[in-house]
Design a protein around this nucleic acid. Structure first.
Length: 764
DNA sequence: CTCTAAGGTAAGGGTAATGAATATAT
DNA sequence: GATATATTCATTACCCTTACCTTAGA
């Protein structure tokens, strides 16, 4: 089975013109299509803009339960240069009941002149909307009447990415270093068309883009909490300047909207803390009065909170709104308590909606007639807290998140009060919380960013997937049958966090290993795989969990020498690799035993370095530098030789991280039980289940025979990590070198992450 | 001078994250 | 009863839209 082939077969790209197709680190395909070529081929009449047709066809043989979702945006590079880029994001939604056989998605990409009548792919109105500066009702009505729709509300990460790359392109094309020059220094005339240009591909009114950009680049924004001194000064300035927010802001070093917002919060007459019964009663009266409703009626919209606050007298509009929507409205209308069943119901109902984007959820509808729901807004915040049970909820697609939550609650239902197996590492992993039930093999997917140090090397590999088969373990042996396959879309590097103790064993299939774990602690291993590797995670009925690692395609098996590099700094880890010829024997070739009580250093990347931060000065990503990598050798050099990641090309690197989940989840301050879910692109794979001997509590790191045994002593100091081990698979020995891919992913330094690297120790 | 596109302001409804208080479990 | 942990309630920094206003240039 070769998932590589499946993927490349299922998506065929036809272009009319000669184009360059590259892939960025996010998995986006970027089509570079020069105008002149397009003209030659497409149209003799230069007045007629050329049609560029990109045809994506879907072969569903291997994707029978997935629906591809492809969005396309066109981005002009500059005014003069009429070439443009198409950024295409292809995602696969989980939609079990939807089998689209032979789905062919056609996308037409047109030049701006034709924006108004383009094919029905969802991007047709984009430009019309994003090129229009409209704020009046008439403008909007006019566009709405023409059938245009546009996005409102919070900007998604994807949108911000598009915006950022548009800006970057604009700057590059004009040789401008800093966008703030344009935004804050240039005259209208000088920056002519700036906003129009950067709005390309965004289905938002130009005005919205403008606002967003101003906020983003205003360094007086995001200043943080107001100090008491600032508040005092603000009060004075307010008296002096009234509502001249710009002046007040300038005096305080804050943005105008920031000081305006802050002033809204500080009414002199405002009480704080718990509401008195009298206040609550007053609030209820006022709300009903102003909305012409009766006590008992549900009121969640159409309330002028400023007016309410004025009448209530003792609270600000925000306080009033919050109190009403999160409590009073529900109490008044005789609401019932929110239960665990409600929580499960919520997940199921959201799942039933089959929306691909969380923003598509109609909370009003969802809340309707649900007595324990206090308000749509409240329900949404409830969802937010539920969502955070998945530690990496930010990194996974919405359908995947839903699936993960369903599974999580399924497990909780099936195993109420189930205690997890021994937790020898004592890492305090969120998902091992006893009240949250069981978490089994949870593989976290994180993408390492492409190094900026290297040339923007177009990724040759298109969507090379890594497959993970995840068999959820419940107490019933039957669960093994219920395997789910997870296909990871990875052109570049993938990082997986798996369980802290495991070992690799051959499965009988050449190039296939079983990575067996003995703990349910979803901690500290990060598996970085080459595009040609498959990870199969499974849980045997009797536990321990197993992860099968194997190469994807026979060619790769035959032609490459895949190194499996394992690095861990957790105690008690067994990793075994066995020569292909040796498959049946599963003989230990090299053994490395580590003191189970070793406390390892922290190797975790902060979550924001994985691309969640949206601000210009924060767009650096986690990378590993050569220098940092060379630092490995300093660690425990007597026992383990260092190995530059560039050499690991087509290998699997297992890197341990301490308390990864906690760090990853640092934004969820309440230590909710968390679990990781994996990107599940739904490609089914039948993985052969091989009987595996249960490993005992002692874990041993076993390294390949080709380099001899390396026996780790028990005296590894507590700050040191387990060695990075290169496991050479003889089967894969002639594997082609793809080092540039990993090299580009790991090549650049980033101070934030230097700790990561310093803690790495390699050996082979 | 008028018209209009582009830029801008203030107000207010909203979200997401955090902190404080309270409840519950150990 | 003390402590730890979870949950709820309250707060706040920041976001986004709406409804206007202003200005520069055609």
């Amino acid at each position: 089975m070769s998932t590589v082939e499946e993927e490349s077969d299922t998506v065929t790209v036809e272009t009319v013109n000669s184009v360059t197709l590259t892939q960025d680190t996010e998995g986006n395909l970027i089509l570079h299509c020069p105008q002149n070529e397009a003209d030659e081929v497409d149209s003799e009449d230069s007045s007629e803009p050329p049609h560029k047709r990109l045809c994506l066809s879907e072969d569903d043989q291997s994707l029978d339960d997935s629906t591809p979702c492809i969005s396309v945006v066109a981005v002009p590079i500059s005014e003069n240069d009429q070439s443009f880029e198409v950024t295409m994001t292809a995602t696969t939604e989980v939609a079990e009941d939807e089998i689209n056989e032979g789905t062919v998605t056609q996308i037409q990409i047109l030049q701006n002149e034709q924006l108004d009548e383009i094919s029905p792919m969802g991007n047709e109105e984009v430009s019309a909307v994003s090129q229009a500066w409209f704020t009046t009702k008439e403008d909007k009505d006019s566009l709405t009447n023409k059938g245009h729709k546009w996005k409102q509300g919070m900007w998604s990460k994807e949108e911000i990415d598009i915006l950022m790359s548009n800006i970057e392109r604009y700057l590059k094309a004009r040789g401008i270093k800093d966008a703030t020059e344009i935004i804050f220094e240039m005259s209208k005339d000088e920056r002519k068309d700036f906003y129009r240009t950067i709005a390309w591909g965004l289905n938002r009114p130009l005005f919205a883009v403008y606002r967003r950009v101003l906020r983003m680049y205003d360094d007086r924004n995001h200043v943080g909490k107001y100090t008491p001194e600032e508040i005092e000064k603000l009060k004075e300035l307010r008296i002096k300047h009234g509502n001249d927010w710009a002046t007040i802001g300038a005096a305080l070093g804050r943005s105008a909207s920031s000081v305006k917002d802050r002033c809204r919060l500080m009414k002199d007459t405002c009480n704080t803390g718990k509401w008195t019964e009298k206040e609550e009663k007053r609030l209820a009266e006022v709300v009903h009065e102003l909305t012409s409703t009766e006590p008992g009626d549900i009121v969640t919209q159409g309330v002028s909170w400023a007016a309410v606050a004025e009448r209530v007298g003792t609270r600000s509009e925000k306080q009033c709104r919050s109190k009403w929507l999160n409590y009073l409205n529900w109490k008044q209308s005789g609401g019932t308590e929110w239960t665990k069943e409600d929580e499960i119901n919520l997940i199921l109902r959201i799942a039933e909606l089959e929306v691909s984007d969380e923003n598509d959820i109609n909370w009003d509808l969802l809340a309707e007639g649900w007595s324990s729901v206090r308000s749509p807004q409240w329900l949404r915040s409830k969802w937010w807290t539920i969502k955070r049970q998945i530690a990496n909820h930010k990194d996974v697609s919405f359908p995947v998140l839903i699936k993960g939550l369903k599974q999580l609650h399924e497990n909780q239902k099936n195993n109420p009060g189930h205690q997890l197996p021994e937790n020898k590492c004592g890492s305090g992993l969120a998902n091992t919380n006893s009240s949250s039930g069981v978490q089994h093999v949870q593989i976290r997917v994180a993408r390492l960013e492409e190094s900026t140090g290297n040339a923007p090397s177009p990724m040759a590999a298109l969507q090379i997937p890594v497959q993970i088969t995840h068999v959820s373990s419940t107490d019933s042996p039957a669960a093994t049958v219920d395997s789910e396959t997870i296909t990871l879309n990875s052109g570049t590097l993938q990082t997986f966090e798996i369980l802290p103790s495991f070992h690799l064993q051959p499965t009988g299939t050449p190039g296939t290993y079983l990575l067996q774990t003995s703990s349910s602690q979803g901690l500290p291993l990060t598996l970085t795989t080459s595009p040609t590797m498959t990870l199969t995670a499974a849980t045997a009925p009797s536990s321990p969990e197993q992860i099968i690692v194997h190469a994807l395609s026979p060619e790769h098996l035959l032609n490459t020498s895949d190194n499996v590099t394992v690095q861990c700094h957790t105690p008690s880890v067994i990793i075994r690799t066995v020569a292909a010829e040796d498959i049946s024997s599963s003989v230990t070739q090299t053994e490395l035993a580590v003191d189970p009580d070793i406390q390892s250093a922290d190797l975790t990347d902060p979550p924001d370095t994985l691309g969640t931060n949206t601000f210009p000065d924060d767009i650096h990503q986690s990378k590993l530098s050569d220098e940092e990598q060379s630092a490995y050798s300093e660690d425990d050099a007597s026992k383990f030789s260092s190995r530059n990641s560039r050499e690991l090309m087509d290998g699997v690197m297992v890197r341990t991280e301490e308390d990864a989940s906690l760090k990853q989840d640092e934004d969820s301050h309440s230590d909710l039980p968390s679990t990781y879910v994996t990107e599940d692109l739904g490609s089914p794979t039948i993985e052969e289940q091989v009987d595996q001997p249960t490993i005992d509590d002692e874990t041993v790191l076993i390294v390949p025979s080709s380099h001899g045994f390396i026996q780790a002593a028990d005296d590894i100091d507590s700050e040191s990590v387990l060695p990075l081990t290169t496991l050479t698979d003889p089967i894969l020995q002639h594997h082609g070198d793809g080092s540039h891919i990993i090299g580009s992913s790991l090549g650049s330094p980033d101070s934030e992450d230097s700790k990561d690297v310093e803690d790495l120790v390699s050996c082979h």
